[in-house]
């Protein structure tokens, strides 16, 4: 039900995996924002190879990529069914009331290529950065501790709650609950309510235990920041790629 955000051995040994997260996160974020900035169709042939190169140095298997593309792909399918037929004036081909329009097709092409390019880089980024490392990077980017603490705690509780929910639903099924009509709304609401009450009571116990262990007395220091020349080189490469995309955007 919930995929674990773990970094595999091959991914953490790869070039991207060894890149200091405090430079990798801002570097790759810059790249995806510049991908999002592209409005010109003639720049599209540059996006896919760039994204493929970044994915290639992540050490992640291709299956990892395709498995994660499936779910957002449905949204893209919906756009593919709407845009070419409703957007624009230039009719390319007509069949009864259906007209294939040029502007719609071109904007669909732009959306699809940008979508795949951005998602590929994002998957490479999160596939090679563990959550604790991501938190450190976010802290050094100036994200308040309240947000990063919330992030770590939420992640910590996710799996437990997911298994709680699974247990409750199994119990409900054993009692003959099918949950396939609108009448299932009330039992489902009670299951959700029970989960909230249970997790709240548990959070109070956890909090007491944490205070006993010294939580709340200032935030923990971040691990030392000792980047290698290669870390800066990778950052320079991503800044170069981003600058190139923006420059070409203005020249073309």
């Amino acid at each position: 039900m919930i995929a674990e955000a773990v970094v595999t051995k091959s991914a953490s040994a790869s070039l991207l995996g060894r890149w200091e997260s405090r430079l990798k996160v801002p570097g790759l974020l810059l790249v995806v924002f510049c991908f999002a900035f592209v409005r010109d169709l003639s720049l599209l042939p540059l996006l896919l190879p760039a994204a493929a190169l970044i994915y290639a140095v992540s050490g992640l298997p291709l299956k990892h990529l395709t498995a994660r593309m499936r779910l957002p792909g449905f949204f893209l399918l919906a756009m593919a069914l709407i845009l070419p037929f409703w957007s624009g004036q230039t009719v390319l081909w007509q069949l009864g009331p259906l007209a294939l329009r040029q502007e719609g097709l071109l904007s669909l092409l732009l959306i699809v290529v940008k979508f795949f390019a951005i998602l590929t880089v994002v998957i490479a980024l999160f596939g090679t950065t563990s959550l604790p490392k991501l938190t450190v990077a976010l802290r050094s980017l100036g994200i308040p501790w309240l947000i990063t603490d919330l992030l770590l705690f939420t992640y910590r509780y996710l799996y437990q709650l997911a298994s709680d929910l699974r247990r409750m639903r199994t119990a409900a099924r054993l009692r003959g609950f099918a949950g396939n009509s609108l009448f299932a709304l009330k039992p489902l609401a009670y299951i959700a309510g029970t989960m909230l009450v249970r997790s709240h009571e548990q959070s109070e116990r956890v909090f007491q235990a944490m205070i006993l262990r010294g939580y709340g007395n200032g935030s923990l220091p971040l691990p030392p920041f000792r980047p290698l020349p290669a870390d800066y080189l990778l950052l320079a490469a991503s800044i170069f790629l981003s600058a190139l995309l923006i420059l070409l955007q203005f020249i073309i």
Binding site: L150, F153, T154, Y157, L161, M195, L196, H200, S203, M210
Partner: peptide
């Protein structure tokens, strides 16, 4: 408030 907020967020 963080543990409570985090548990509810996860929930």
């Amino acid at each position: 408030e963080i543990p409570r907020a985090a548990l509810l967020t996860a929930a």
